[in-house]
Amino acid sequence: MSHHHSHAHQGGFDENAAERLAWSDAMLLGHGPMDDTHEEFVHVVKALAACNAVTALGCLQAVEDHLLAHFEAEREWMVRTEYPNMDCHLDEHQKVLDTVLRVNQLAKDGQVGLRDVRRLAAALADWFPKHATYLDSALSAWISKRRHGGVPVILRRDLAAGVQQESTFT
């Protein structure tokens, strides 16, 4: 598997990503604890994107606290299962965490405003689906293979809502 870096630390990202970020079964990767953590990630980033001057610091702290626990849980799974692509994955986590820690500290010091906080939410929302699709899905499959001898079976509801399904049986 090739290394895929979705450079969250660069400026070229979708400024409206946070408005579109929404948890759905399409995001399930088949490892229950990881899926639960990812759902929580979506909620804290959505809250950050919707924050105001009064709630911004609390929302930033919630994102920081979540990421510390989220990334540590994934690191523990990688170590426990001897995941071969661990360095690349952890490197990307560290870049994201460094950015969040820096913005949170600057916000506490009164050096960044609401626009910067919302840009962080947009950058996180832009980064996450790519990271989950490339790096976390591979980790989920690896964990499942190590534990159960095969890839996870993922049951997703309502993905084709409103889409007419054609029957192949006549």
Rank of each mutant, 00 (worst) to 15 (best):
L60W: 04
T99W: 11
D36K: 14
W127K: 03
L60T: 03
S24F: 15
H70I: 03
L60P: 04
L101M: 11
A26S: 13
W77V: 03
G11C: 06
D14N: 15
H5E: 01
V151M: 12
E76T: 09
K130V: 07
M34E: 07
Q164Y: 15
T170F: 13
T168H: 14
C88E: 09
V45C: 12
R75H: 07
G110D: 04
N85R: 09
H7W: 03
S6C: 04
T168K: 14
E82D: 15
R157N: 12
A123F: 07
A141S: 14
V96L: 08
R156W: 04
R20E: 13
G110W: 11
E92Y: 12
V103T: 15
L29F: 05
D87G: 01
A69K: 10
V96M: 01
F169V: 14
R115Y: 04
H31K: 03
L139M: 12
R157Y: 11
I143A: 06
A122K: 04
L57E: 07
R156G: 04
H7S: 01
L28D: 08
R157M: 07
Q165W: 12
D87I: 05
A8F: 06
V54E: 10
R80P: 02
H93T: 01
D87A: 07
W77R: 07
R20K: 15
L21Y: 05
S24K: 04
H148S: 10
V54S: 10
H70A: 03
V151T: 13
E19F: 14
Q61M: 06
M78P: 02
P152F: 13
D35H: 11
D136F: 15
H43C: 03
E40H: 14
E92H: 09
S24I: 08
L120I: 08
L29M: 14
L57I: 11
R147V: 13
V44H: 01
L124T: 05
A138C: 07
D116I: 05
V54K: 06
A49E: 04
V44K: 00
H31N: 10
L21Q: 00
F169P: 00
A161V: 12
W127R: 02
D87P: 00
H31Q: 10
Q94V: 09
P84M: 02
E19Q: 15
A125R: 02
H70R: 05
L68R: 04
R118P: 06
L90I: 08
L106N: 09
F13I: 02
A56P: 09
G11T: 13
P33E: 13
E76G: 06
A50D: 02
V163A: 14
V42D: 01
A125C: 02
L67A: 01
L139V: 06
A56W: 08
V45Y: 14
M86R: 14
K145N: 12
